[in-house]
Amino acid sequence: MVVVPSDTIVLPRRSWRDGLTSAQAQGWILLAPALAIYAGFALYPMIEVFVLSFQKWNGLSPAREFVGFANYIFIFRDDPVFWMALGNTVIWTALAIVIPPILGFLLALALNQALPGRNALRAVFYLPVVIAPIAVATMWKWMYDPFFGLFSTLLTDIGFQSFIPDWLGNRRIALYSIFAGYVWQHAGFSMVLFLAGLQGVSDSLVEAARMDGASRFQVLRYVILPALRTTTTVVVVLSLIQSLRAFDIVYGMTLGGPAQSTQMLALWAFTQSMQIHDFGRGAAVAVVLLLMTIAVIIPYLLWRARNDKAQGRSA
């Protein structure tokens, strides 16, 4: 753990033969490629989303017509799918910030104990995280196959043939069927973060508490949980951000169907823009999602900045 003063190195300008030798010029050169690409292909599109949401555009014709709030009025008042997509996004997010983190937390607690083969077990739970979300969607879609898929076959084997639901075709359960695949993929992510957080829980404190006769639950409640407060916030926020982005897994499993009942904001923005070719309405949907995301990002980043400062930037 090295604590260094925050002063940066300032090179004396020793030569004026070449502007490149000045420290600042060198700095700009080093910064430029990343900054230019980031600005051009991440920040500019973000601004463009806002601009587009006030225009009518088919994505290709040179003419973009300014239409004021017409796109917003359409999606809020007249679009039969928008509220469904928003509702699904809210349900999905609420589930995503609770279930995978809790599962991950329990796994982390368990896999932090002295158990044989715990590294292999960790690897198993973490493995789905590295699988492409679109592949997860394809896998789960096949497992949900109403005739030959894993779940239907298993239910048939134990004699529950008549209870096989149409996992992805029944609008009441399709969203949750997709979510099951999401949990499978994401629980390992929370687990790893909690495991890292548990490294920061002081051993001696736990031991001392136990010596004093604290029960397992008391140790968890009064020693471990308080020490994991920062980690928990991080996990919840990251889970929230990830869940707002859910796109691939829905695209791959149902494309928003049946009858748009698994539609979500990110996918609906894409559908409006890229498939119906109404970039204005698509952008308006995107803006709603973007504002929801930014409303989480900014307070979180401020909180982290404060937190880091309080911890004296120790790594």
């Binding site: 991440a42 920040l43 463009e48 989303v49 994505g59 973007l290 980043l301």
Partner: peptide
């Protein structure tokens, strides 16, 4: 840059296409 660490590109697919 830090702001960008959490920016969802899924929201900007259409403008990305047009850029």
């Amino acid at each position: 840059f830090v702001f960008g660490t959490m920016l969802p590109f899924q929201v900007m697919l259409a403008p990305l296409f047009s850029v």
